[in-house]
Design a protein around this nucleic acid. Structure first.
Lengths: 155, 155
DNA sequence: CTGAAATCATTTGTACACAAAACAAAGAAA
DNA sequence: TTTCTTTGTTTTGTGTACAAATGATTTCAG
């Protein structure tokens, strides 16, 4: 089978940058996953009381929004309904979040921070700042701002 | 309870940038999670045959490394041993990856792509390029390079 | 007012992600 | 060779993450 028409570029139905050069380590998805992994690792090792990144996000956001429905908290923290439910359930079990039916709208579940929840947020805010700081420690001030802007642009 | 000593800055045991201004949406962890979410959403909607980002990473990397042990593939794709096992198991069940005991080292599990696996990679490479392209579509060429470099720097 | 559409919550099922522990096999040091 | 250490794999348990379906409630249009 002699091949003679292999290199003829037909109309590109796909973006073929350099045709065939697909390096996993250069793909944006891989880079995002890696960077996120490192951040989570830093977070996990630094955050004292076994709070996950998502749990922390929910607590911090709830502090600003409370009282707040579960779905709304999910929206504000970029979590799926099923995900936010799991997160809230675990936080409620640990007595950091209080849940109560809404007296006005029977569909809603009203969330508030407990005393303990408020305290946990207050106590860990400096830690959270340190975590962000360490994650970005290899970047200059300008680079940090640039990274934040670029991430926002693609979100 | 009158408060009079609230604003006195004691020695900062933590990095307090503007003391108390912690905005979730500005934190690097949140931005990374958001950007990754959007990329995964694009990937999921575009990739035809129900391949996940991780499964795709494993397939592509295995193509270059095969034959290759399971743990090694995990290392090369930044996956935990438990994670890579799950991914490989699912790919093997779908006949995209073949597993066999290593004749030299009885500990190792040797992985190779099946014919079907090779075909799946070849068939979807253009799609994968499109996915990366769409993820970065709001950025200029220079911005893409900058983002990649910054992500690498913090990884 | 009533039926359709939208919203909120829950459940189910699949798939990462990682810590920790257990075990077998290989390699190195004594 | 025998012991110690390292390496590869598997298993268990917890916690995101999301699609899809279900049911209850509210809102809105007619």
């Amino acid at each position: 089978m002699q091949n003679g028409d292999q290199e003829v570029p037909s109309q590109p139905r796909h973006s073929d940058k350099a045709a065939g050069a697909y390096t996993l380590a250069e793909q944006i998805g891989y880079l995002l996953r890696q960077a996120n992994q490192r951040h989570v690792a830093i977070f996990t090792s630094r955050m004292n009381e076994k709070l996950t990144t998502t749990q922390w996000a929910a607590l911090v956001k709830l502090r600003d929004l409370q009282p707040c429905s579960q779905v709304n908290l999910g929206r504000e923290t970029a979590m799926d309904v099923a995900t936010i439910k799991g997160v809230v359930d675990r936080l409620a079990k640990r007595n950091l979040v209080r849940t109560a039916p809404d007296t006005t709208d029977a569909r809603r579940l009203v969330l508030t921070l407990t005393e303990e929840g408020e305290a946990a947020v207050a106590r860990n805010l400096p830690v959270a700042n340190d975590i962000s700081e360490e994650t970005l420690s290899t970047l200059s001030s300008a680079e940090r701002a640039m990274l934040a802007e670029l991430l926002r642009k693609i979100s």
